[in-house]
Design a protein around this nucleic acid. Structure first.
Length: 422
RNA sequence: GCCCCCAUCGACUAGCGGCCUAGGUCACCACCCUUUCAAGGUGGCUGCACGGGUUCGAAUCCCGUUGGGGGCACCA
């Protein structure tokens, strides 16, 4: 019987939750959930000055939004400060550590090698001569990260340490400490880092990096999860779209790649569009309304829902809605240079004559108008679109006109004609 | 500087010695559809970093080079 899997997600409470951390946590979570294991949330705050309650709440909110949950309450590294001190004292008594100017240092072996079979990278070995005698406990009594972390892994009976590649060089030190502590060793899996398009660590200048920014832009958690999972991992060479359940079912550490990945915002947009389009209209409407409300938008819900059929097929991010469909909620300011007086006047007249103001009849009327004017559809529709929506890009024209209503549509056409007069 | 890791299309990746004249997806280009932008359909463009080995046979194994990344705190 294999021991039950237990992993931990260990963010630093430094403000916001970085999307790269989310990817690492996602791998932990998928691994644990796929094996009926436990996934703990541990806040790494050995440094008091960085402990910000607000930051922790922020992290938890971000994780909840994206749908990564954890077992039990979040724990704080700082809470085990005394236990760490006791263990350090014990190590000193055992001769495995020693005091120096009030701090306690671990005595690393002078020669030989420390290695492990990384679940992602394979065999890795470090010459012990390279290992420094790391400080376990600072002179002020607080344990350092390289001590607190393994102590907690030991106490929490962590079976798999799945973390970023940047921790590789910490691993041999932690293995030595764990061994001196008398702890069993967890399986280590160092997952690749995520870079920006320039190959440098993903940062603000590349675009969105905090989970909140992605939420704000109108990405769906499901799409983000799907996208992130594919950064450094693939179930096979074909599958791209996978919902949470499938991800949990198919994820495995041995299929995680060893090389770092580049965050491709274009692909994320495409993937988000796929998820957005796949939503049942009612669910899409619910999501859209909730999204807008969260951002302080108070446009009438009824109208927003009516606009859904016009936008669902067109936008890739919920954040595009205000600019894409805003003309349905407020007046527009079309560029006079794009308006055609004669066309707009004719169009206004034609729409006034339409019996039933719905997209079908509107389409018929406008096509008839094209024939009558002897003009190509694009020459006629372009100015109408601009006059009515204020933009060259919009939802389908007939549907937009219908939803806007005869009165408003005609009024915009007329004022557009007037504006074009110049 | 020292240590560690990585290396397939522009990007994410499949590939774990012959199925590869290298497959899928995004992006890009062309065409179709079309009232625009999208979406959708069809087709296309690009890649095994380089040099040595091993082998009947290498994208796949080994060595080196080059390039990239990470780490060398009483930070995490």
């Amino acid at each position: 019987m294999a021991a039950p899997v237990r992993v931990r997600m260990a963010p630093s409470p430094t403000g916001f939750l970085h999307i790269g951390s989310v990817r690492t946590f996602l791998f932990n979570w998928l691994f644990a959930r796929g094996r009926g294991g436990e996934c703990l949330l541990r806040i790494e705050n050995t440094d008091v000055s960085r402990e910000v309650a607000a930051a922790v709440e922020q992290i938890q909110r971000s994780l909840e939004w994206i749908g990564i949950d954890w077992d039990g309450a979040a724990t704080f590294q700082l809470d085990r400060i005394e236990r760490c001190q006791e263990e350090a004292k014990r190590l000193v008594e055992d001769g495995a550590a020693y005091e120096e100017e009030g701090a306690i240092r671990f005595r690393m072996p002078e020669d030989g090698i420390t290695g492990w079979d990384d679940a992602v990278l394979g065999r890795i070995e470090f010459p012990n001569a390279e290992l420094e005698d790391v400080v376990l406990v600072r002179s002020d009594g607080r344990p350092t990260y390289n001590f607190a972390s393994p102590v907690e892994d030991w106490l929490d009976e962590i079976t798999h340490v799945i973390r970023g590649n940047d921790h590789v060089s910490n691993t041999p030190k932690q293995i030595q400490i764990l061994t001196a502590l008398g702890s069993a060793l967890p399986v280590y899996a160092h997952v690749p880092m995520i870079n920006g398009p320039d190959g440098k660590p993903l940062s603000k200048r590349h675009g969105a990096v905090s989970t909140d920014e992605f939420r704000d832009s109108g990405y769906l958690p499901e799409a983000l999860i799907n996208f992130l999972a594919l950064l450094g991992w693939a179930p096979d060479g074909e599958t791209t779209i996978m919902d949470r359940g499938e991800l949990v079912d198919r994820f495995s550490l041995d299929r995680v790649g060893a090389s770092s990945a580049t965050f491709d915002y274009d692909k994320l947009d495409w993937l988000n569009g796929v998820y957005l389009r796949a939503l049942p209209p009612a669910a899409y409407a619910d999501t859209l309304v909730a999204y807008l409300r969260e951002r302080g938008n108070d446009w009438p819900e009824e109208r927003i829902r009516e606009a859904v059929p016009l936008v669902q097929e067109k936008i890739g991010r919920l954040g595009e809605f205000p600019s894409f469909a805003g003309f349905l909620f407020h007046d527009v300011e079309p560029d006079p240079a794009l308006l055609e007086r004669a066309v707009l006047e004719e169009a206004a007249a034609a729409l006034e004559r339409v019996d039933l103001f719905e997209s079908g009849p509107i389409e018929a009327a406008l096509k008839e108008l094209c024939e009558r004017l002897g003009a190509k559809p694009r020459q006629v529709f372009a100015p109408i679109r601009v006059a009515v929506t204020g933009s060259k890009i919009s939802p389908g024209l007939y549907e937009s006109l219908a939803l806007l209503g005869r009165e408003a549509a005609v009024a915009r056409l007329r004022s557009g004609a007037a504006a074009a007069a110049a």
